[in-house]
Design a protein around this nucleic acid. Structure first.
Lengths: 332, 332
DNA sequence: CTGAAAGCGCTTACAG
DNA sequence: CTGAAAGCGCTTACAG
C-alpha cells in the first residue's frame, strides 16, 4: 500500500495566496525577511489546515544538513551496557532534534568502513563511534573529515568520552576504608594490564589504599567469569585464606565469590565485605545486595551525543563519573 | 571542520566524456538503456578514479526511496533482550541494504507519534514497531499508511512477529517428563493472565502435562523477581513442601528458587529439577547451570525486518521458535 | 515587503 | 545508442 501523498510547500503557499518563498520563510521562522502579519497568519493557517510537514529529504538536499547522527558500535547487545550507550545517544539526539542511525560491526574493520560510508552517503551530520569495552580504537578512514565523537574508546586527536575508572577504583577502596577495613583486603579477578578498566580500577584502588597507609593483601587471579572466580576463591579459602574484604573487578566475579563464600560457610558482610564494579542487574539480585560501582554507559552515549550536537569536537578525553550503588555487602 | 566536498555524478560524466544520464545508467546498472561498451568502461573507470559515491539524499528525493527503516521501541535497554531486537533488526536491515533509525519512547503515546513523524518526514521506507514485553499495542496513527511490522506486540490488521510462548511452555513440561518427572511438578511465579508470556507459558505447560496424564502439583505465587521467589519458595519449603521439580516462569524467579533451595539444603538437580524461561545470562552463570527456554528477541527483530524488506506485510501473526538451552538443572 | 529564479544532485521519460 | 530536459521539494540569494 503506497503511503498517502504528502502535502507540499507549494500547496500551502497556494492556499495562503503567497509565494513558495514567503511560505518557506514563515514556516522556518526566519525573521530577517519581513513578511506582513496577515501573510504570516494565512501561511500558518494553511499549513495547519493541510497538515503540512516539510519533506526533510528535500530540505536536506538543499541545505546539506539532515539532522541525523550515525552511531557505529562494535556490539549493541551482548551486554545490557552496550544497549545503554545506544539509549543515551538516542535520548540526547532527540533532545537536539536529531534522529539516530544505528549500525553494528562486530569490530570488523571492513564492516566499520561500510557502515560509515552508508551513513556519510546519507549525509549524517555527525558520527558516534562506540566500543563495548573501553579500549583504544582505530577510527574508520571513511569517516575522516566527519564530525566525530568516540564513545567508550580512545584515539589520538579525537574527542573521546570514557568512564572514570580510576576514580571508581578509588571509590571502591574508600568504601572499605570507611567501613573500617585495613588489612586483609584482596582483589578478585586478574587485573590484565592491557585492559583499560582493569588497569585503572587497580591503579585507583592501590592509590587510595596507599593514601590510607595500607595496601592490598593479595590478588585472587581468575578470568572475569563466575565459574572462574568461584574456583579461585574456593581454592584460596581451602588453602586457609581468610579475607576481611574482597574487591571484585566486576559483578560476575562477585557472583562466583558469593557462591564460594557460601559454600565455605562465610557470611557477607559479617565475615567478609564484598564490593564490586559494573552494577549490573545481578548486583541488586544477589543476597545480600552487592555494593557496586556503576558503569556509566547511558551517560557515555548521552554526553558524546550532546558534544556532537554542540560541535564541541576538540581532541581530548571526557571522563564520566561512575556512581557508587551502596547495598548490603559491606559491613556497616 | 567541513567535510570534504563530495564528487558528483556530473564530474564523473565529464571525466568519462558522457552525459550525466548515461553515467547514471551505467552506475545504477540499468541494462535496458543500451550504453556502448567503451562508454561503460570509461564511466566505471572515472567513478573509481574519483572515488565517486552517489549522494543518497539526492537520489531519495528523486526516487522517494531512502533505503532506510525506522525502529520505534518502548525501551531499548532495560533488559538485554530489548537490545537484541535492535541487533536483529540492524543485521537484517544491513543484509537488505537498509540503514536503521532507532527511537525510544518509554511507551508514551505522544513520544511514539513524534518518533513516527520524524521518521516519516525523513521518508523511511518502512517502520518497525517494537515492545519490550509481548503485549497488545496501539500503533501510532502517524504511521498509518506506512509499511509496518510489529515486533513482540500484537494489533489487529497488522503483521506481527512474536515468540512462540505456547510451544515454549510445552517444551518446558516435556523436558521434565522426559527426565521421568510425573508428580510434584510446581509452577513458580504468578501466571498473571493479562501477561501474554505468562498466560501462554502456563497454557503450554498444562497442555503438555495433561497429554502425559498428569498435572501441576501447585503454583508458588510470587512476582517475577528473585527476592519474591526466594520468599515464596522458602515459605513453601518451611511448610513442609517437597517439590520434585520447579518450572520457573523466568530466570530471575529461578535465581530466588536456587537461593531458597540452597538454604534448605536441597540439591539441584538431585533433589529438585529446575527449568526456566528466558535464557538470560544468569542461566549460564548459576551453579548448576540452569536449563532455560530462550527468548528469541534477536530473531524477532531479524524476522520482522526481513518481512518489511520483502514487503510481506499481510496481517497475521508470525510465531518465532524459542530454543531450549539444556544445562545441568534437570536430573539426567 | 514580495515574487521569480536558481540550484542542491540525482533519475528517468522523451527525442533524436 | 546518446543527449537535452524536466522534475523530486525544498531554501535562499537576488531583484524589484
Amino acid at each position: 500500500m503506497p503511503s498517502a501523498r504528502r502535502v507540499t510547500l507549494a500547496e500551502v503557499a497556494a492556499r495562503a495566496g503567497v509565494s513558495r518563498a514567503a511560505a518557506s520563510f514563515v514556516l522556518t521562522g526566519r525573521q530577517d525577511m519581513r513578511i506582513s502579519e496577515t501573510s504570516q497568519q494565512r501561511v500558518l493557517a494553511a499549513a495547519a489546515a493541510l497538515g503540512y510537514r516539510p519533506n526533510l529529504t528535500a530540505r536536506s538536499l538543499r541545505t546539506s544538513v539532515t539532522r541525523t547522527f550515525g552511531l557505529i558500535s562494535d556490539t549493541i547487545a551482548v551486554s545490557p551496557f552496550a544497549g545503554q550507550i545506544v539509549q543515551g545517544a538516542v535520548a540526547a539526539a532527540r533532545e537536539s532534534g536529531h534522529l539516530l542511525f544505528v549500525a553494528e560491526t562486530g569490530g570488523d574493520p571492513a564492516a566499520e568502513e561500510a557502515a560509515v560510508r552508508e551513513m556519510v552517503d546519507r549525509q549524517a551530520d555527525g558520527l558516534l563511534y562506540a566500543a563495548m569495552f573501553t579500549r583504544p580504537a582505530a577510527v574508520p578512514s571513511s569517516g575522516a573529515g566527519q564530525p566525530t565523537v568516540l564513545v567508550n574508546c580512545l584515539a589520538d586527536g579525537a574527542a573521546c568520552v570514557i568512564p572514570d575508572e580510576l576514580e571508581a577504583g578509588r571509590a571502591a577502596a574508600r568504601i572499605l576504608l570507611l567501613a573500617g577495613h585495613r588489612g586483609g583486603i584482596y582483589l578478585a579477578g586478574t587485573p590484565e594490564p592491557t585492559v583499560f578498566a582493569a588497569r585503572e580500577r587497580e591503579e585507583g584502588i592501590e592509590a587510595e589504599l596507599a593514601a590510607a597507609g595500607t595496601t592490598l593483601a593479595g590478588t585472587l587471579h581468575c578470568d572475569w567469569w563466575p565459574g572462574h572466580s568461584f574456583e579461585a576463591v574456593r581454592a584460596f579459602l581451602d588453602g586457609g585464606g581468610r579475607p576481611s574484604a574482597l574487591i571484585c573487578l566486576n559483578d560476575r566475579i562477585a557472583l562466583g565469590a558469593y557462591q564460594a563464600l557460601a559454600e565455605a560457610g562465610l557470611r557477607i558482610p559479617a565475615d567478609v565485605s564484598v564490593v564490586s564494579f559494573d552494577d549490573s542487574d545481578l548486583a541488586s539480585w544477589l543476597r545480600p545486595g552487592l555494593t557496586s560501582i556503576a558503569l556509566p554507559h547511558y551517560d557515555l552515549g548521552y554526553r558524546a551525543t550532546t558534544l556532537l550536537a554542540a560541535g564541541q569536537l576538540d581532541a581530548g578525553v571526557h571522563r564520566i563519573a561512575m556512581p557508587v550503588r551502596a547495598r548490603e555487602s559491606v559491613r556497616g
